[in-house]
Design a protein around this nucleic acid. Structure first.
Lengths: 368, 368
DNA sequence: CTGTTAGCGCGTTCAG
DNA sequence: CTGAACGCGCTAACAG
């Protein structure tokens, strides 16, 4: 029912091959026939069948973007930047360019390893041109090997892979042939950022600092916690492992986890003078809980977040946090997955993080 | 290079058709052969070629989701909900169901009509199973007719269309045949919500209320402004058109527009006792500007937003706003676009909005 | 219940 | 520069 290449060819009085050639512009075609073909295309409102094209040419217009949840600003910002880079101008008023642009298939994994594998299969089905995996990896279980296997297969079949905000996968470093070059990583310096953040609190004079961590099995959680503890250790405040664990509560990367964790920390250690949260969203929950307990921020207790999400500057009080250039990272991931930018040395680029000191942290009270 | 149906068939000692049948489960196949086929599939790590399948069966696994920008929580929340509904369990740990799930192609239009049309063409290329258009429509130019035309074609070719947070398109109401049933709308009661919000301010005693509107050509902007003015009119405060316009400033739906607009309003009318913003993000900008001018919220001036985005409850002070159940709306749009829910009467459902009174609004100062 | 035969719509040889 | 023929990988009739 839909108009096909053949219909256009018939109307233009040429063969289907010729129509294909003018449409793809990769072959010499006489100006007059090109005119005729284009007019026929226009008359018939012809739109190529992407599936047929993909099948015949063994190419795909799709790029997968795996995120925990696009509704989370952290992932939304990355996904948006990736989409902007791969669209190749479809989002520009100037019109549709040759066809260099690709479509972003956004997949919410909810942080579930199984969902991640499911989506990778689905993307393999679609013979995706590339896949961007965002957010921390789930460590410890056999999951990482399973993912590595799937990614290796995708890479082998020509799909470009970019890990964004996730550590490199060692198993993928030595793939045969060109496949090794098609796996790239844009990592975040979570460890360094976390360390500088805690150093900032220590410099203010804090000595009893609670830590609200994310899920234990996430690489992001681990790196941030390591940075935090490295700062403590350098200040000679490491304490025993039991002591460290007493001031650490794990939860999810959401507001209510922060709320609950803050109350738990206060229960464990009423003398707390500062709380570092896994990220800004968690920090908001922490702030809410502390305020409800009658504590003023930062006069009675300091709070810090991570990521520097857009809302953090408007929180009450403005959140001290660690900025990750998420848009830049996402854009870079987008360019890499499109092959529009040379891969960084070793396939690994690490984006810097920046300490943002705002109003939610201050020196502890004299009495504390 | 990739393993194909034929390879599986060969290994299992059956014909390609049989393999296809067990994979799709739509045809009776003997238990023993099914076993053999499934083992061959497993041995060879076979993954169907979605393009070939789509071409042969004239179906598609893709659903387009057009948003202004996924990084904006308003759109992120909707997109997330849509994707959750259409995934059909791919995001569940239980594994991949038959193949009922579809992939979400997220397109950032940046609010540009041309980009919207470009993406609709791209989605037509992919023979998308459905398209969800979110956010307000751009009115006034020839754009709406152009979009209507494209949507009509998509609908005619079997693509289901859902407008989410956008008014129904009249031109699409009387399409021939089943096409009319495949265009549905999930509208937001922007007008009613805006009216109740302003009524709330009037009840508090405010009489000089500034309004920071979105871009003039957006349907969302228009509806919210209409609601606001309807409330003023009912209270006998309509004033002359010139007077209304003096207290209205248009900008984008972002923070910096709110910031600038607040300063402009203050310049035009220093006696302002309240400001209503186009949405929560804009409201944050308004708050920031007012605070910098030394005004306390709500003691010196009240501020209200719209949408009730997640961060609004944690803003300083917590924002009075109008809640739109974005997740619910997105989920509903997802179900409709999948055909998993019966279309509402007349193809139009309007989701209610709810006034959320929080700390950013209060009675004006006695002296004001 | 299973194999055989045709296409789905397009890109790409290979001749002309 | 253009047309004819073939095949991409799979599903859907049609027989058996």
């Amino acid at each position: 029912m839909a108009v096909t290449l053949a219909d256009v060819a018939a109307r233009a009085g040429v063969s289907a091959a010729t129509v294909s050639r003018v449409l793809n512009g990769n072959y010499p075609v006489a100006g007059s026939t090109r005119e005729r073909v284009l007019r026929a295309v226009d008359d018939l409102d012809y739109v190529v069948n992407g599936h047929a094209r993909a099948l015949a040419a063994a190419t795909s217009d799709l790029v997968g973007v795996l995120v925990n949840d696009v509704a989370d600003p952290f992932f939304g910002l990355i996904a948006s930047a990736v989409q902007g880079e791969i669209s190749g101008g479809a989002d520009q008023p100037s019109g549709l360019p040759a066809g260099a642009g690709k479509l972003a298939v956004v997949c919410n994994t909810g942080g579930s390893p199984e969902a991640e594998l499911n989506y990778l299969t689905l993307l393999e089905r679609q013979r995706a041109a590339g896949v961007v995996l965002t957010g921390g990896a789930v460590e410890g279980t056999g999951h990482s090997t399973a993912v590595a296997g799937r990614l290796a297969r995708l890479a082998a079949s020509g799909t470009r892979i970019v890990l964004c905000g996730r550590p490199p996968v060692p198993e993928l470093a030595d793939l045969p042939g060109a496949a090794a070059d098609s796996v790239m990583t844009v990592a975040f310096d979570n460890r360094g950022g976390a360390q500088r953040l805690t150093e900032h609190l220590l410099a203010l004079g804090h000595r009893t600092i609670g830590y609200v961590a994310g899920p234990a099995e996430r690489s992001t959680t681990r790196h941030r916690l390591e940075g935090h503890r490295a700062a403590l250790a350098e200040a000679g405040l490491a304490g025993s492992p039991a002591e460290l664990d007493r001031l650490t509560v794990h939860g999810y990367y959401d507001r209510s986890s922060g709320y609950d964790a803050a109350l738990e920390l206060l229960r464990r250690e009423p003398g707390l003078t500062a709380v570092v949260a896994a990220n800004d969203t968690v920090a908001l929950g922490v702030c809410a809980a502390l305020r409800e307990r009658g504590l003023r921020i930062p006069e009675d207790i300091s709070v810090a977040g991570f990521d520097d999400l857009p809302f953090s500057v408007d929180a009450a009080p403005a959140l001290t946090t660690v900025r990750i250039p998420l848009q830049e990272a996402g854009a870079r991931a987008g360019r890499l997955v499109m092959g529009r930018q040379a891969p960084p040395p070793g396939g690994l680029a690490t984006v810097r993080t920046e300490l943002m000191v705002r109003a939610s942290t201050a020196a502890p009270r004299k009495g504390a």
